[in-house]
Structures are given as C-alpha cells and as structure tokens.
C-alpha cells in the first residue's frame, strides 16, 4: 500500500514538471479585464466627488481650495483596486488599467492629482446625483469639501458655501495619537 502510494505520488509530481514562471525575466501580462491601477481622464472629470464618496479605503480626497478650484487627489498607496470609483463615475473618467507592478520608492509616484476648475455643479454635486439612480449610492457629502491632503485624511464635514473658517480648521487636522 505504502509503495503504490509513493509510486503514484512520484507520477503525480513528474507529469506536470516545472510549472513556475520565469518572472520577471519572462513578463506575465494581466488579463483583459484585470483591475489594476485606476487612471483618471482629467478631460472627462467633472469633479463631482462621487468616487471619493464611495471609495471603501478612502484614498480619493477632495479639497476645495477656493470657490473655483477643486483638487482631487488619489493616493495609490492605500488603494485596494476594487474598481468602485470606475463603477460609480458618471462620466466614465476613471478606467482600471492593466498595470500591477506598482511598487515604488516614492509615494508621489503613485499619486494622481487633478486640479479642476469648477463651474456650477460644485454647489451640491448635482451632476452626480442626477446620473446615479441607485438610492443607496447617492452622494452623501454635498457642497464644498475640505479633506486634508497633507495627512491624506477624509473629513466628513461640508458646507453649502465656500467657508474659509472650515478650511482653516481642517488644515490643521491631525491624526489621532496616544
């Protein structure tokens, strides 16, 4: 019994042979609908902030610098590549690319920063609200947003009109510590 099992095991190992790939010398491309690093198309982005609202890892931040200028920042170091942002985007400005070799020395290399000139829809995120018909996916932080880009922290506080006081408050945001 013991011997026949061992013979079977030898055959089991011999048949497939070596299966490991010679990576990275021999590149292993990702399949077609792979969810790799998200890529922003700044021509299409309307700055509604929907992606930042629905990012499970909170790595897309929205900060209004003034009435007309909104900064969207994607921090790739925290991204889980779930592709939720690409799903939610009403303008299809986000696509999940095929790139997966994302290790780098500098965090900034995998950070995307968009500076958008805003027209009317910054007031309430209405463009997004109009597009999205699923009631549990509606935007929940409407109006002006003040996430802290330095600390990479999302701040759940918004205002109807641009407020310098709130901006000043959130600029000094610090992460909780002991």
């Amino acid at each position: 019994m013991w011997l026949t099992s061992k013979i079977k095991q030898v055959l089991m190992v011999m048949k497939p042979g070596v299966v490991t790939l010679n990576y990275p010398e021999q590149p292993a491309p990702a399949p077609k609908n792979f969810r790799g690093a998200p890529v922003w198309d700044h021509h299409k982005c309307i700055g509604c902030g929907g992606c930042s609202d629905h990012c499970p890892s909170r790595c897309i931040l929205t900060r209004d610098v003034c009435q007309e200028l909104r900064v969207m920042l994607y921090d790739g170091s925290r991204c889980t590549y779930c592709g939720r942002c690409a799903d939610i985007c009403p303008e299809d400005a986000i696509t999940m690319s095929n790139s997966f070799q994302m290790a780098c020395e500098n965090k900034e290399d995998i950070t995307t920063r968009l500076e958008l000139f805003m027209m009317t829809c910054q007031r309430c995120g209405r463009c997004y609200e109009m597009e999205n018909t699923n009631s549990i996916d509606r935007i929940d932080l409407k109006g002006f947003r003040y996430d802290n880009l330095e600390q990479r922290a999302m701040i759940r506080k918004t205002t109807e009109n641009f407020s310098l006081e709130v901006l000043a408050e959130t600029e000094h945001y610090e992460r909780p510590s002991k």
């Binding site: 990702a30 399949p31 077609k32 969810r35 779930c82 939720r84």
Partner: peptide, 22 residues
C-alpha cells in the same frame, strides 16, 4: 497549490483579481 493556481487565474480573468473578487 499547483492545481489551485488555475482557479486563481480563472478568477483573475473572471472578476479582475485573484482574490477579493469585488
């Protein structure tokens, strides 16, 4: 684990990721 790897690759083609299918 060699046999399992095919399932992981299948999932990658199917959902876009080996694990955490989303």
């Amino acid at each position: 684990w060699r046999v399992r790897e095919q399932i992981m690759w299948l999932c990658e083609r199917l959902t876009g990721n080996r694990k955490t299918y989303g």
